[in-house]
């Protein structure tokens, strides 16, 4: 590298250039390292106050308790009702989002004409951009009355409409990541299938889906972890009464109100409870649990997705 380069910048002294490179390298590294700092602060924030909480409440009782009564005198703090409500929301939303999302992905990746794709993909993306508080509003003000109109005995706040809405919200997530995975399947595989006389249906279901299955699964996990962490829909439409799952009447659980872990956290900052009590600090213990769950699900999804990347790239 000589000083005869064409660019004015390049003609500056080599010394200054190296120093400048180092400076930028350092700055950019700081940007990337900031994300690690964010993770550490999340864990620290949650852990410090969660420790405070576990100083007052026995962790074993917390994680195995089947009753959640948040009140200023003698609160009963067992996380299981919140966990079961979260599970209900996750499962029902998965029942909505997985079939619809996967079918949409297959259609977009295998069947849709370019023109169709250019309309449907942005439309799905716009779906993904609707704020969750708006979805919550849809559930509370329109979906619940519809369900009541259909003859379902749902209460004003209920887990069913909240979960269905969470499901609709995560459809674009399932469809877009699954579609990416399906598009990553090399065309040669499809052509081999056609060469053997397979129909488009057979190619889609017996070649493309199995070949991209790890990507599809990773999209499911990501979407489910989003459903677990979803806050505003369940706060607005799901109610704030924690109820333990009642196995004797599985459907009644859906029709009643229920409180998920995220909703309990929001409630803890907006109640008449006095701060500094176990009830208040419970928010951080729930947050830590939630963080641990979503973190491990995301790790799992990364692992699975990494496998499929290795397969075809």
């Amino acid at each position: 590298m000589s000083d005869t380069s064409i660019e004015a910048d390049l003609t500056r002294s080599a010394n200054g250039r190296i120093a400048k490179e180092r400076l930028y390298h350092g700055l950019l590294f700081c940007c990337a390292a900031l994300t690690v700092f964010v993770t550490i602060s999340i864990v620290a924030t949650l852990a410090i106050d969660a420790l405070e909480f576990f100083g007052r409440v026995n962790p074993y009782a917390f994680f195995t308790g089947t009753e959640w009564v948040l009140r200023s005198e003698n609160p009963i703090l067992g996380i299981l009702p919140l966990v079961t409500a979260t599970l209900i929301v996750t499962i029902v939303s998965a029942l909505v989002a997985i079939p619809v999302g996967t079918a949409a992905a297959v259609y977009l990746s295998e069947y849709a004409s370019d023109r169709m794709r250019s309309v449907l993909k942005p439309a799905l993306e716009i779906l993904a951009g609707i704020p969750t508080v708006v979805y919550g509003f849809f559930a509370l003000v329109y979906l619940t009355p519809w369900l009541q109109g259909l003859g379902l005995d749902v209460s004003l706040f209920n887990l069913l409409s909240a979960s269905v809405m969470v499901g609709i919200m995560i459809i674009p997530m399932v469809s877009s990541i699954s579609e990416d995975a399906m598009s990553a399947v090399p065309d040669s595989l499809r052509q081999a299938g056609y060469g053997l006389g397979a129909t488009k249906f057979e190619v889609s279901t017996k070649i493309v889906i199995p070949a991209s299955i790890s990507g599809i699964f990773s999209s499911y996990i990501l979407a489910l972890s989003r459903a677990i962490g979803e806050t505003m829909i369940v706060v607005v439409a799901g109610g704030s009464r924690a109820r333990m799952f009642d196995p004797s009447e599985p459907f009644a659980n859906l029709l009643n109100s229920g409180q998920t872990m995220t909703a309990a956290m929001v409630q803890a900052v907006t109640t008449d409870l006095s701060g500094g009590t176990a009830g208040y600090y419970s928010m951080f213990a729930i947050g830590l649990t939630l963080f641990a769950i979503t973190f491990s699900m995301n790790l799992l999804s990364n692992r699975i997705a990494a496998r499929y990347r290795e397969e075809y790239q």
Binding site: A268, V269, T270, T271, D272, S274, G275, G276, Y280
Partner: peptide, 11 residues
């Protein structure tokens, strides 16, 4: 802002 009596005092 309705933060709740306790939430208001504490936070």
């Amino acid at each position: 802002d309705p933060t709740g009596s306790g939430g208001g005092f504490e936070n």
